[in-house]
């Protein structure tokens, strides 16, 4: 009898059951993988690179008016493709309820300036006078002009 009691004691498993934890981890991993590319506003374009852009944190707010111009001249308002001439109405509708009156233009580096001008014209008719031209920071390389002089004058 004494022997059988000891035997039962030896069957206790000291390992933690990690399967639920692995499940949760996998789900978290997948969530982060899916969300990361979705965080940017508008469609993704190949932005122009410049030396000293300013930060525009408002451009990634959920209600920011981002107009994207693709290389072939197609125009997207946020993530919907629309004809350029409907842009005025779209922007006008949103402008009334908008805190940030600025329109962000996300133009492809190789887009023709004519396409951008068409967007600017239509946005201007809606009464917008502040634009943010979204660009990338140029990787520091040869021939970078010095940073802007501090202060005025």
């Amino acid at each position: 009898m004494a022997i059988s009691t000891r035997n039962e004691g030896a069957k206790v498993n000291s390992n933690i059951n990690v399967t639920p934890m692995v499940d949760v981890m996998l789900v978290l991993l997948i969530i982060f993988m899916v969300i990361t590319p979705m965080l940017q506003n508008g469609v993704s374009v190949d932005l122009a690179q410049v030396n000293n852009p300013e930060r525009m944190p408002d451009a990634e707010k959920e209600d920011a008016m981002v107009v994207s111009v693709m290389r072939d001249g197609t125009v997207y308002f946020r993530s919907d493709k629309i004809p350029v001439d409907q842009l005025t109405q779209k922007v006008k509708d949103r402008l009334a309820s908008q805190q940030d009156k600025r329109v962000y233009v996300k133009a492809d580096a190789r887009a023709k300036f004519g396409a951008v001008v068409a967007v600017v014209d239509n946005v201007r008719s809606a009464g917008v006078d502040q634009l943010g031209l979204l660009t990338d920071q140029k990787k520091t390389g040869h021939g970078a002009p010095p940073p802007p002089p501090a202060g005025g004058q």
């Binding site: 990690v18 982060f32 940017q40 300013e54 031209l133």
Partner: peptide, 30 residues
């Protein structure tokens, strides 16, 4: 499963730390 969990944890931390680059741009007026 310990090595598996190690790898998963590292991947999760990498994805949490990578936040999309801050948008930058040039001011212009119309």
């Amino acid at each position: 499963v310990t090595p598996l969990i190690d790898v998963l944890l590292v991947l999760i931390i990498i994805f949490m730390v990578i936040n999309p680059p801050q948008p930058k741009g040039l001011d212009a007026l119309v």
